[in-house]
Design a protein around this nucleic acid. Structure first.
Lengths: 182, 182
DNA sequence: CACAATACGGAGACTGTCTCCGTTTGGCAA
DNA sequence: TTGCCAAACGGAGACAGTCTCCGTATTGTG
C-alpha cells in the first residue's frame, strides 16, 4: 500500500472513532471523510461499507476485550460474583458508543458481516468464563457462550436505547446470572 | 374532522401497515403516502413524525395484547410453564414486523415517544402475569414488570436482528424465566 | 349556492449515500 | 535525477429519503 493511502486510512479510522463517539453509529460518512481531510471517494475506496469501517475501528477493541477477560478471571470469589462481574464488564465493553450494543449484538452469526468476525472475540472471552464456572460446577447443564452473549447483549441494547443507568442494569444482569447458574 | 381527512387518515394507516410489514420500520414514508394515494404533505400533516404514524397503527395491536394475556392467564399448571408461555407470547407480540422489537423495547420510559404510551399495555399485561405468579409465591422478591419487559424485549431484539428461530429463542427464555423465579 | 374553513398535493430545499472519472502523487527503473 | 505509470485522490453529481411551504381544491354550513 502506498504511503499516502496508508496515511489516509489511519486518518479515516481516527476520524470515524471521533465522529461515531460524538454522534453514534448513524453519523454521516461524508462527515467522517471531511473530518479526516479526504474526499468521500477516498473513504468509500478504503471502506466500501459502513461495516468495514467499523471493523477496522474495532481492531484495538478486541485487545481490550481480552485484557478485560484476563482481569475478570483473576478475581477469586463465589461463582455468582465472577459471572456477575463478567456480565457487567461485557455490557461495558459493547457499550463503547451509542448504538454499539445493537450493532454488535445484531451481528452474531450473521455471516458476511465484517463485524461478526470481531464478535468471535466476545464469544471466546465468554467461553473462557463459562469454562471456569463449569469447572466449579456452578452452571446449569446446557449453557452456550453465544446464547449468553445474546442475552446480555439484549440487556445492553435496551440499556443503551433507554438511556438506563448502571443501577437499572444491575438487577437485570442478576436475573440473567441467576438464570444461568445451577 | 372532515370526511376526506378521515378517509385519508385511514388509508395512510392501512398503507403504513402494508409497507412496514414488507420493508420494516425504516421504509420510506413518501412511499407510504404514495401507496395511500395521497401527497407527502398530507401524510406529514396527519402524522408529523414516523412515531405518530406507528402509534396509530398499533392501536388495534393493543387489543391483541390484552386478549393474549387473558388466554395465557387461563392456562392452569406449574408457575414456570405459565411464565414461560407468557414470555413466548410476549416475544411473538412485539415481533410483529422486522425491527419491531427494537422499536418497541427502545421506547419504554422514553417520555414524549408516542409509542411509549402503547408500551404501557405491555407493562400492564406483564404485571397481571406477575401478580398471578406472586400469589403463588413463585417469584423472587423484587421483580418489576418494566424490568421483565426490557429483558424479554432484549431477547426479542436479538432474535429479530439475527433471524433466530424459535428453537434458538426458547432456551434463552428459559434462562430468563429461571432468573425471575424464586 | 356561496363562502370560509379545512384539507390537499407536489415542487423543491435539504441531507446523506455512493460513484465516476479527470487529476494528482508516489515510488521504481533507467 | 528524471520520467513514467500504476495507484490513489477528491469532488461533482446522481440518487433517495425527509419534510415544508403555499397555491389550489374540497367540504359542509348558513
Amino acid at each position: 500500500m502506498r504511503a499516502d493511502a496508508r496515511r489516509n486510512r489511519e486518518a479515516l479510522i481516527e476520524a470515524a472513532r471521533e465522529v461515531f463517539r460524538e454522534q453514534g453509529y448513524d453519523a454521516s460518512l461524508d462527515l467522517v471523510a471531511k473530518r479526516a481531510g479526504v474526499g468521500p471517494g477516498t473513504l468509500y475506496r478504503h471502506f466500501p461499507t459502513r461495516e468495514s469501517l467499523m471493523d477496522a475501528m474495532l481492531q484495538s477493541w478486541v485487545d481490550r476485550v481480552n485484557d478485560t477477560t484476563d482481569k475478570v478471571l483473576l478475581h477469586e470469589g463465589p461463582p455468582r460474583d465472577l459471572l456477575l462481574s463478567w456480565l457487567q464488564e461485557y455490557v461495558g465493553l459493547i457499550s463503547v458508543h451509542k448504538g454499539g450494543p445493537a450493532k454488535i449484538t445484531g451481528s452474531f452469526g450473521v455471516e458476511g458481516s465484517a463485524i461478526s468476525t470481531k464478535c468471535q472475540a466476545l464469544v471466546d472471552a465468554t467461553d473462557r468464563v463459562i469454562d471456569r464456572l463449569e469447572d466449579q460446577g456452578a452452571l446449569r447443564a446446557d449453557v452456550e457462550a453465544v446464547q449468553m452473549c445474546r442475552l446480555v447483549g439484549g440487556v445492553a441494547v435496551v440499556a443503551d436505547n433507554g438511556g438506563l443507568e448502571p443501577d437499572d442494569v444491575r438487577p437485570m444482569l442478576e436475573v440473567v446470572a441467576d438464570g444461568f447458574l445451577a
